[in-house]
Design a protein around this nucleic acid. Structure first.
Length: 589
RNA sequence: GCAGCUGUAGCUCAGUGGAUAGAGCAGUGGUUUCCGGUACCAUGUGCGGGGGUUCGAUUCCCUUCAGCUGUACCA
């Protein structure tokens, strides 16, 4: 379906053209003065200079042409030169009916579907997921769903960190604690044990301990670097420990991501890029891109236009081992080979922006990434506590993701129990999980990804205000009415939407028409928060309508049936939106 | 030092080259038979400061102040 704004703009363009004005002045937009109109065109003011006429005179001429167009209820020129438009109610109701019958509510699939890889895990094996992993997971998941909804082919990749220093640290610490293990005996020739010498929780304790010690103890850190290099060279004992770490850690990570309804199509990891490294490095050297500097192998990425000094991109450390950039670049090699994507999107902390600038430039310069492979960095801000500082536990430690989720679920459970709407305690627990997820995800996604935000448990779990639970509440309320009415699905032959009578009803219909443009914008700008503000508005305008309209007791059955259709559409649009945001609504709460 | 980001109401956040800059929370006061009142309605001396471009700037440019972040072998 054509978008309503495009249709209006088309009409206005015709009018501009008929008056002898350039149609580029005819762009219509949503009104920023809802008290005056629904749509507006400001082009007369811009045109005034070019045509040396008073803006209001131009607006008057154009309006003259638009009067009598049955698409519009009113069209008027207002000083200094605004053209204000209200949509005809019959036209609007027909348009909304069209939305209801169309696939995806009339959203046109993208003309050129792209193959997109989204890299948004950022999790490291051997480390539990903590609150810092929340944002990339939530944002990336939503970007994946949005792009997919628009018709792109999207591959979500967790891209685990399993090849860096953190593994060396774990090996080193394990060696200190259990020197007797066969992995550390270089003369050992037999088979290593099948079971890991640690559990998940032990592993989760080992890493932080090792990390802390390496910051104080130079020798210890050197050893860890050595072990990392050994692992990357494929040394048997290190390799075996690495396998144990993977076996213990990956299922646990999956479990935690599942809990967030974050799913990946690929569980690739840094080590998967390892086989591509030698050839890649060789090629960079051969073609003259890479050279040795201060012992390391680097590629220059400076450009004339740079306002600041950009350090070269380090391809290999001076000890010959690979690092973050090595595997990221080799991963691009792999992705080009396996998928030949049009676009790779990285969702990580915004503090890594400069690093990704280096990697992207290196990738293009060395032709690892083709000219048609777009590389995009989506940097997200930090989740802070109420004090405005990075979110911590009460004693100042790093908050585990699972604990955070459990806290929110607990909070929701308390609220839901108070309602006494649930059949059983079991139901209440299930519902609490669903609502808690909406609180966490909506709380995150309703902020611009690039900005820091404050995680406020009280606010996010509230059923009032701009929150996930409020959105869910609205959906549940609609479902409840539909259930009582006895129609929870719409069949195409029953769709009849009458022209709106009240203002709140018209407002609801108008808001519904903005579904497609909102989705498109959110996709283009990689901005899930725009969907949040859209559904928040939609929920508001629905609740206003609901409050003014007694649906179930309406005696005019045609009118009532029409309202039911609007309710069905509103419910479906809301549910589609939260689906692409990455959460769902219960049937009651 | 250099570079980048941020600065909007008491708090948390939207927003746009245009007409009176919006929400939520908190506060206050309301809402005939309530389809879920976890709702709805009313109520607000705010775009860090200063220049510039423009018919028009919170939005674009310059400058200045404040906070945060980054700045070669961590990821």
């Amino acid at each position: 379906m054509d978008k309503i704004l495009d249709i209006i703009t088309g009409q206005v363009q015709d009018a501009f053209a008929a008056c002898g004005y350039d149609t580029r002045y005819a762009q219509a937009g949503l009104s920023n003065r809802p008290d005056l109109c629904e749509f507006q065109c400001n082009g007369a003011m811009a045109a005034a200079k070019a045509y040396k006429k008073a803006p209001i005179a131009i607006a008057d001429e154009v309006v003259e042409r638009l009067l009598g167009n049955d698409m519009f209820e009113t069209v008027e020129a207002v000083k200094p030169g605004f053209i204000n438009i209200k949509l005809d109610r019959t036209y609007l109701s027909q348009y909304v009916m069209g939305m209801k019958l169309a696939d995806k509510f009339g959203l046109e699939p993208v003309k050129n579907p792209k193959k997109i890889v989204i890299d948004y895990g950022g999790a490291n094996v051997a480390k539990p997921l903590h609150v810092g992993h929340l944002r990339p997971a939530i944002i990336g998941e939503s970007l994946k769903r949005i792009n997919r909804y628009l018709g792109h082919e999207v591959i979500g990749d967790v891209h685990l960190g399993d090849w860096g220093l953190q593994i060396g640290l774990v090996i080193t610490e394990l060696k200190k604690r259990r020197p007797d293990l066969p992995y550390f005996d270089e003369t050992f020739q037999g088979e290593y044990p099948k079971d890991a010498p640690f559990t998940v929780s032990e592993l989760e304790e080992i890493y932080p301990a090792a990390s802390a010690r390496s910051k104080e103890d130079e020798e210890y850190k050197k050893e860890a670097l050595l072990e990392t290099a050994k692992l990357q060279r494929g040394e048997r004992g290190c390799r075996a420990i690495w396998e144990h770490i993977m076996a213990v850690s990956v299922p646990d990570l999956k479990k935690n991501y599942d809990r967030l309804h974050v799913t990946f199509d690929l569980w690739k990891k840094e080590s998967d890029a390892h086989p591509y490294i030698p050839d890649m490095v060789e090629k960079m050297k051969r073609e003259g891109y890479a050279y040795e500097s201060e012992g390391a192998l680097v590629v220059d990425v400076k450009e004339e236009s740079d306002a600041k000094e950009l350090p070269p991109c380090i391809i290999l450390k001076s000890d010959g081992s690979s690092l973050y950039a090595t595997t990221d670049l080799a991963t691009i090699v792999e992705r080009e080979k396996l998928f030949a994507p049009n676009h790779i999107i990285y969702v990580t902390d915004k503090r890594q922006e400069m690093y990704f600038t280096q990697v992207f430039r290196t990738a293009y310069k060395t032709k690892i990434a083709g000219e048609n492979t777009e590389l995009t960095f989506v940097g997200h801000g930090t989740m802070n506590g109420r004090d405005g500082k990075p979110f911590k536990t009460r004693d100042g430690g790093v908050m585990r993701l699972s604990n955070l989720i459990a806290d929110v679920e607990q909070q929701m459970y308390k609220k839901i129990i108070e309602n006494k709407n649930q059949a059983s305690e079991e139901d209440a627990k299930e519902i609490a999980k669903v609502v808690a997820l909406s609180a966490i995800k909506y709380g995150d996604l309703s902020n611009q990804a690039s900005k820091d935000y404050v995680f406020d448990m009280e606010r996010f779990t509230s059923f009032e205000g701009n929150t996930g639970p409020y959105i869910l509440y609205t959906i549940v309320r609609i479902k409840s009415i539909l259930k009582r009415y006895g129609q929870e699905t719409g069949t195409s032959d029953s769709v009849r939407i009458l022209p709106a009578t009240g203002e709140s009803e018209k407002g609801l219909l108008l808001q519904l028409t903005q579904f497609a443009p909102t989705m498109e914008t959110a996709c283009e700008e990689l901005a899930p928060h725009k969907i949040c503000s859209y559904i928040y508005e939609l929920a508001n305008v629905f609740n206003k309508f609901y409050h003014e309209t007694k649906i179930l007791s309406e005696e005019d059955k045609d009118r009532q049936a029409s309202w039911i259709q609007i309710l069905l559409l509103t419910r479906d649009v809301l549910e589609t939106c939260i689906e692409v945001l990455g959460f769902e609504a219960p049937d009651r709460m």
